Simulated scan of single mutants.
Amino acid sequence: MVLLRIATRGSPLARAQAALVADALVLANPGIAVETVVVETLGDRVQDLPIEDLGDRGVFTRSVQVALLEDRADVAVHSFKDLPTEPMRGCQLAAVMCRADPRDALVSKDGCRLTQLQKGARVGTSSARRTAQIRRARCDLSAVGLRGSVGTRVQRVHEGDLDAAILAVAGLKRAGLSSVISEVLDPEVFLPAPAQGALAVEVRDDRPDIARAVTRIDHAESRIATSAERAFLRGLRGGCNAAAGALAVVSGDHITLTVGKFDEGSLGAEVLKGHTNEAVALGYRAAELVLAGGSVQAS
């Protein structure tokens, strides 16, 4: 029996995501056993400051990667949207799990939809991307900083501290909280974060045997879609909390990539289409268009 140690953050959602990876690894590799190694990250330790004030990329991933590199774990599991686009030396992306719903959701106190929230309603989020899109969709709403676990954020809404909050559909479902969703937000109104809903599984470069085992749970379509989205983010030279969104849809050999950068004066979404073997190039092309101020569809 081969034991694989899986490094993860300690939040309930992170543990649930690590369990999904563990189950998939055991199913795909008979003879493997797994155990969880819980790692505290900077983002876990410091929750009284906005993410952008922590002064470091990878605030939810770097410590997990260090555990992998220091041989305290064999596998590292991340929410892919939290993983910096600049690779960590010594680590390799061995698998992208089959992606869950990438969209954002509104959780509101009274079950209201976004259009039904009262003027001046307080909407919680820690994301610059979500904040910008709240203001674009409803300039009469007030975006309020919100940190903490998925359960904590939902609780603040239900206790009346906030009128609503925006969270990832995938995170709510994995945390067993799908029943609190008031509205799943249309990506045409709210573009999700690049790679939102996907789980990334890393291994060390010097362990090809472990890489082979992990590669068996890789989902090709999810890898292609997220590679285009993350290439867009990297082309913008933006971090994981940049005010930018991207969503790629793969259909056969073709990919459609919708992107947006929600800065003041931005011109809205760009839509590009191409072949799946050009997914990364398509993402970089999208970034070039956005940075150049393009406003027409490209294909």
Rank of each mutant, 00 (worst) to 15 (best):
V280R: 14
S178F: 03
D104L: 13
V21W: 07
V144M: 05
A242F: 14
S142T: 14
A121D: 06
C98L: 14
V96D: 00
H158E: 10
L68Q: 03
E52W: 14
G274L: 06
L199M: 11
L54I: 01
V249K: 11
L172T: 01
L289Y: 14
R9D: 01
E278P: 02
G43V: 14
G245V: 05
E288K: 06
R138P: 07
Q196H: 11
V203I: 09
E183I: 00
E221W: 13
V180E: 11
A228P: 07
A28F: 10
E188W: 00
R204G: 02
A213Y: 09
D206I: 08
A198D: 11
H78Y: 15
V201W: 12
D104I: 01
L20R: 12
E52I: 01
G245A: 09
G90D: 09
S179Q: 15
A28S: 03
V64T: 06
L106Q: 10
C240L: 08
A193R: 02
V214M: 07
C112P: 01
V249E: 08
S127V: 00
V46H: 04
D44G: 09
R138C: 11
L69P: 04
Q118F: 06
L42W: 06
D56P: 08
T41K: 09
T41N: 05
Q47N: 12
V144G: 08
G239V: 07
A19C: 06
C98W: 08
A128L: 15
R234V: 01
D82E: 15
E229V: 07
G238P: 13
A95D: 03
M1C: 07
V107K: 06
A193I: 08
Q133V: 13
A128M: 12
V37N: 02
R45D: 03
M97C: 13
V144Y: 11
G10K: 02
S127C: 04
A33V: 11
S266M: 00
V46P: 14
V180W: 14
F60K: 05
P187D: 10
L20N: 03
Q118S: 13
A137T: 14
G265A: 09
L172D: 05
A279G: 05
A33Q: 15
G197Y: 08
V184M: 04
I32W: 12
I181K: 08
R113M: 04
A246Q: 06
G238Q: 06
A67R: 03
A137G: 08
A33F: 10
V184T: 15
R230Y: 07
L162Q: 02
D71M: 05
I6E: 04
G43M: 09
E40Q: 11
I224N: 03
S222V: 04
P30W: 13
P12E: 11
Q118Y: 05
E188L: 09
A242L: 15
H219K: 04
P50R: 02
S63D: 15
L117A: 10
A128S: 03
R135H: 13
R45W: 08
D218H: 09
S182I: 02
P102D: 01
G293Q: 03
